[in-house]
Computed example of a mutant assay.
Amino acid sequence: MGRRHQWEGAAGLFAFPSLGAASGPREYLALAGALAGGRGLTVLAHPGFAGEAVLPRGRRALVRAQAEAVAEAADAAGQPRPVLLGHSSGGWIAHAVARELIEIGREAAAVVLLDTYARTEGLHGLAVLTERLLDEDGPLGVPDDARFLAMGGHLRVFADWAPEPAAAPTLLVRASASAASAAAGWEYADHVAEVAGDHFSLLGSDAGAAAAAVDGWLRGAAR
């Protein structure tokens, strides 16, 4: 499984990057900064995006490996019931890992989804994502061929996937300007918090608002 990246803090979150070609721990730098001093953030990268010639054999293999990785990381952090987080398609992993943890005798405390949807965001959302990926002057740069191969391999194993009932209390943080916000949602969210911004700014200029929504919900859920 991919390398583990951790930012220190109390009552941490265990995050999974998206499955896009720009996938990686750096997606969460702004969110980690916004959470600093309140909650730690550990990011568990997916295989194949750092140049290694490894792709998931199947969805179950990927999810089981990430469940085992997050269980190990949570134990190391002294947090036996981890809070899982994922942005965009990374939320698919967070949701699936919460269910898989039960299979290995563990349990997630909660799942946080940042602008995650059960279906693709439609042609407009795909066009926006493609434009950003291919803009060499943009914040994401242009991923190399290996990253596009990794993206294809991961999306392939989720091609026929649909989320099952949640295994832990679930928050959906929805971006008010997201291309998908008006047409889609997450069936198994216990609470939906809408914050200003778009699909990408939740982990950029609007990371502070996203962090406040996450922290507020988790504090309320713990009572």
Rank of each mutant, 00 (worst) to 15 (best):
G2S: 15
R3W: 08
H5V: 15
W7K: 02
G12V: 06
L13D: 08
F14P: 08
F16Y: 06
P17E: 08
P17M: 07
L19S: 06
L19V: 06
G20K: 00
A21Y: 14
Y28S: 00
L31D: 06
L31E: 07
A32V: 01
A36L: 00
G38K: 14
V43W: 01
A45S: 15
A53C: 06
R60K: 05
A61M: 11
E68A: 11
A69E: 15
V70W: 12
A71H: 02
E72I: 00
A73W: 00
A73P: 02
D75H: 12
A76M: 01
A76L: 13
G78I: 03
Q79T: 10
R81H: 08
G86H: 05
G86Q: 11
H87F: 03
S89N: 08
G90M: 04
G90K: 07
G90H: 05
G91P: 13
I93V: 14
A94L: 00
H95D: 07
H95A: 13
A96M: 03
V97F: 14
V97S: 15
L101W: 06
E103C: 05
I104P: 10
I104N: 13
G105P: 03
G105Y: 01
E107F: 00
A108Q: 09
V111A: 11
V112P: 01
V112A: 04
L113I: 00
L114T: 03
T116A: 13
R119G: 12
E121Q: 11
G122T: 11
L126I: 14
L126Q: 15
T130R: 15
D135R: 04
D135Y: 11
D137Q: 12
D137C: 08
G138K: 07
V142G: 07
P143N: 07
P143I: 00
D144F: 02
D144K: 08
G152V: 03
G152M: 09
L155S: 00
V157W: 09
F158L: 03
D160G: 01
W161R: 01
P163W: 01
E164Y: 05
P165H: 08
A168I: 03
P169S: 10
V173T: 12
A175R: 10
A175D: 09
S178N: 02
A179G: 00
A182Q: 11
A184L: 15
G185D: 14
G185N: 11
Y188R: 04
G197I: 08
H199C: 01
S201I: 05
L202I: 10
L203F: 12
L203T: 07
A207I: 13
A209W: 04
A212T: 12
V214C: 04
D215K: 01
W217C: 07
R219V: 15
A222K: 05
